[in-house]
Each structure stands twice: as C-alpha cells, then as structure tokens.
Design a protein around this nucleic acid. Structure first.
Length: 510
RNA sequence: GGCCCCUUCGUCUAUCGGCUAGGACGCCAGGUUUUCAUCCUGGAAAGAGGGGUUCGAUUCCCCUAGGGGCUGCCA
C-alpha cells in the first residue's frame, strides 16, 4: 500500500487565516493517525502577491500550534525543494509535455483583450469563459500553421499555455467527504497552466508537485472543489491516473454572524481574533490580532478548531493534540460549513486553563503581569494563578482582574459602601483588623477562623462583615475567597489595606 | 446568470429506517460559594417546505426554497 503522505500548501500572501490553520491541523492529524508524513509546501508562484514575512509567519504559527511538519522548506526532505519558486524550471517542462501530448496549447491573447471580452459579456448579462466553444476564434495556437507558431514563439511575444479541455466528457471527482461529484467537461474553461511570466498557476504547480512529492491525500478547503475537475484532467493528461491522490474537501468556516465565509475583516469588526498570531500589515487596517496575543492557549485554540467540522461521535469534547491524533478520522468530518463561534472558543480556553497546573499557567501569565508593569516571585504568581484561574477566560484577564494582587486598590465600589458600611461599627472593625493581624500561622484557615469567631462573639452578621472586608482588600465585589487572598497578600499588606479601606468607607459615608 | 456543494435547537453537532430527536456553547431558573467565577441540578430551544419509497421516515429519492463556494495570467 501507498505511504500516507499529505501536505499543507499555503500561499505566502499575508497572515495565515484561521481556516488555513484548521486545514493544516486536519492534514497533520490524519498524517499522525495513519503513521504518515505531513509536508509543508510554500506555494509562492504569484510574484505580484508575495508578501515578505508571510512564510515566516506561517512557520511560526504552525510552531505555536505544535503542528510540526515532517518535510518542508526549513526542514528539508527527499522531495524538495519545498518552495515552488525554487521549482520553477520543472513546471515549464511539464507544461511543454502537455503541449507535446496535444493536451494544451499556446495562447497569445493579451490581458487587455481578455478583460475587454469579460466586460463586454458582463454588460450583456453573460459570463465570458475561455473554453472549447470559443477557443477556435481566439488568438491561440489552435489550428495555427507550424511556421507561424514558431515565428510567434520566436518573436518573444508573451504567451500563456492553456489546458485543452476535452469535449463531451464527464469528469468524476471522487471525494472522501462528498462522494462522487460529476462535472461536464464542456462547462470547464481552458485554464492557464503557465503564465506569461513563466510561472505556473496553482493548478499546474499543484498537480506536478503533489505527484512529485508522492502525495496520497489532498485535504483542502471546499473552495477547491470546482477546480478539482481540472486537476483530474491534468492527472489524466500526464498519464498519472494510477497515482492520483484521494481528495477530501473540507467544509468552510463561516462568519460568526451574517453571511459568507469567515474573512480577515470579521476579526477587527467584531473584536475577535481570526488569525493564529498577530500580524502587522503596512497599514493599520491590515493588522490583525491573533489567538496567541488574545491570550489563548494553543491547545484550546486547536481543540476548538478541530471541532469546527469534525466530532468524535462521543460526548467527549476536550481533546489534546495527541488524543486528536489518535481519534481523528476522515469519516467523521462533516459536509456543511461551520460558523465560527467565539463563545465556544473562550469556553475551551477556560477549560484548558482550569485543567492546567498552576505552575505551568504561571509561566504563561507572567508576561502579561510584567507587561502591566508588575513584578512577582514565582511562588506568589503560582498561588495567584491558582486563585484566579477559574475566573479568567484568556491570559490577559489575570492582570486585568487581579491587579490588586500587585498594587494597592485603585478604586472601591461605592454602591456597596453606601449600602453596607456603618460608621458606628468602625471600632468593631478596628478590633477585627487586629484579630486578623494576630492570626498565627497567617494562612487562610486561621484567618477564616479568627474572623468567624469574632463575628459570633460580637453578634454581628456575616453579611455586614464579609463584603466590607472584601471591599477594603480588593475594592471589588468579585474575586477569590477573602481568606485565601488575605493569606497571599500577607499580614502587613492586609493590615494596611484594612486601615485605608475603613478610612475611605467613612469618607464615603459622610 | 452558469456550474458545484450544503441544509437537525440561536451556534457546533449526535442520529448510519423505529425518536419520548441526545450532548456541548450561549441563554434562563435554582443550589453551592453569604462575592464573582468554578461546579451541580433543572428549563426553554431543532429535523426548511412539498412530493414520493416504505408497515414506518430526521434518516433513502425527487422538486422547491434557503445558505455557501467557484466562475482571474490569485491561491
């Protein structure tokens, strides 16, 4: 049996879209599942759209995700080079082979003349298609005398090479996800194989490379389904039917709201990430925030993406990359487009943070704490993460919601003070402060015991004491157990905050 | 417009002819926490419509509608 070899073949025209990450993920998962090889191939045949840094972005994004290629531009392998621009020479040879076999022809039509024809057709409400029905009337080598053709080629006049789609055939694309899809060859256009700059189009380069790299399964987005008929034609033209890979066209990821597939713009519009990593474009509107910078854990982001179009058939939803590698299967990939549900993504991330050991989480939280201008010992930060993680959804939440662990309280919730603070109780609270300070050893359980026995002793109510303590210590009504946070803050800090808090309460109440 | 794909709760989905249609996110209510969050319990919420096939259709077929993709010397 043929080796299981798959490739992820992005074009370095900008940041890698999250849909691309999912395609890479599915390819990777299937490779691991089948003991196969996962290849990264850079499809940089369009020199006009090439964006510097895009390839590095792709590599870094995959690295962050933990999707490691077995072969690729930086890794090497037996079927390189893995950048199409470095394979340029071979494409023209194969284009020539197509010509020699009578499966392609030279076309001299200028870009302008084609554009004009398209515009003319459009004004009549039709669509121009360069196909078998019109190719005889166009400026190409079909029916051209040999000497004229030789002369034209000699003249240095630009030309493209087009696939000569056969007439009257039915092409069947066997798709692992969608079953057999049939196309009438008469409805297919004569796609350009080799551009006038000598570079191949996607269609040629893709087939040549997939064949050369012994790709066994082509797993890509559904947007490629219509052109797969051309790809099948190419395999036939080259005489490679026997080695033709299996195809699997993945459902698209759709916008969170509204219509259409997820686009770059949706990210900035909705304030959510649709890229794995942040990307700095030339203009501000070309810059996008990534899942990483938004504070997602790669495992959570991947788990979320895996479930956009696939499910294990069980009720388990939390899957590590390794577990996915074992349980993933092409049979359970869905057919319909999946809407990008950011709430679900956040839920995954929270689940991952809660499940993560505090020490590991602290390492990821530290940069955010430091970015906010705070410093912390490892020990303190680990304890802090333990107290906060159930309340946080993404990494930056720690610094934002738990700032008071690193600096004095900035503001107090006034409503609660007005509602609950009784100035006449000030003396009792001072006494409570001293009792708390005297707790030995100074830890959560002893502080709790001290506070509770004090409340009973004085005949107070929990409801008039706890909120005031919390407010004095943190300024807010949300947060971890007051005793836990007091223990972490330490006796001196707690004592200070209690004094300051009481003073502030009295002021508010005046 | 043409070609192709798709269609179960708001969203992601299970169901491979027998369904009182299950789970998850989100939402609502209650409990735990005298906070918030977590967690637990409960609730509202779906088979696009119309024809067939069948003893029986969410499941198979057809049509319609809706959604999506493609229709570039882009990938």
């Amino acid at each position: 049996m043929k080796d299981f070899r798959v490739r992820f073949a992005p074009s370095p025209t900008g940041a890698l879209h999250i849909g691309g990450v999912r395609t890479a993920l599915y390819n990777y998962l299937l490779a691991k599942k089948n003991g196969g090889t996962f290849i990264l191939r850079i499809e940089d045949t369009d020199q006009t759209r090439y964006v510097p840094g895009a390839e590095a972005y792709i590599v870094e994004a995959l690295e962050w995700c933990g999707i490691v290629p077995d072969e690729g531009p930086d890794i090497g392998g037996d079927y390189g080079p893995y950048r199409q621009s470095e394979r340029k020479a071979m494409y023209s040879e194969f284009a020539q082979m197509l010509i020699d076999k009578g499966r392609a022809y030279y076309a001299f039509d200028s870009d302008e003349s084609l554009q004009k024809m398209r515009a003319d057709h459009e004004s009549e409400g039709k669509t121009f298609r360069y196909d078998s029905s019109v190719r005889d009337q166009l400026d190409n080598s079909i029916g051209m005398a040999a000497d004229e053709l030789a002369e034209r080629l000699q003249s240095g006049r630009p030309y493209t090479i087009r696939l000569k789609v056969p007439i009257g055939e039915v092409i069947t694309v066997s798709d692992l996800i969608r079953g057999d899809v049939k196309f009438k060859s008469d409805e297919l256009d004569d796609k350009i194989m080799l551009k006038s700059d000598g570079m191949p189009t996607y269609h040629l380069a893709n087939i040549v490379d997939d064949h050369a790299m012994k790709i066994s399964h082509v797993i890509r987005g559904e947007e490629w389904l219509p052109s797969t008929a051309h790809h099948v034609l190419l395999y036939q033209a080259f005489g490679w039917e026997e080695e033709m890979p299996h195809f699997a066209h993945l459902p698209l990821i759709l916008k969170p709201t509204g219509k259409g597939k997820l686009s770059k713009r949706d990210g900035s519009k909705l304030g959510i990430p649709v890229f794995p990593l942040s990307w700095k474009g030339e203009r501000p509107e070309d810059s996008f925030m990534g899942f990483r910078e938004f504070g997602f854990l790669p495992g959570a982001a991947l788990n979320f993406l895996a479930f956009l179009g696939w499910n294990p058939g069980t009720e388990q939803e939390i899957f590590s990359l390794d577990q996915l590698s074992q349980d993933f299967s092409i049979e359970r990939i869905g057919k319909s487009g999946a809407r990008f549900d950011f709430d679900k993504a956040k839920w995954f991330n929270q689940q991952y943070m809660i499940a993560m050991p505090d020490a590991a989480l602290a390492k990821l939280v530290r940069p955010h704490i430091e970015a906010a201008g705070y410093q912390s010992s490892d020990e303190y930060l680990v304890a802090f993460c333990g107290l906060m993680k159930e309340r946080c959804v993404v990494l930056p939440d720690f610094a934002a919601q738990g700032y008071y662990f690193f600096e004095p309280v900035k503001s107090y919730e006034e409503k609660m003070i007005r509602k609950r603070w009784k100035p006449e109780n000030r003396a009792v609270f001072e006494q409570l402060r001293q009792n708390i300070h005297a707790s030995k050893p100074y830890e959560s359980a002893t502080i709790e015991a001290a506070v509770k026995s004090f409340i009973e002793e004085k005949g107070l109510k929990f409801g008039e004491v706890f909120p005031m303590l919390r407010l004095a210590l943190t300024g807010t009504m949300k947060g971890p157990s007051i005793f836990d946070l007091a223990a972490l803050l330490g006796e001196e800090e707690v004592d200070n905050r209690l004094q300051k808090g009481y003073d502030h309460f009295d002021q508010v109440k005046q």
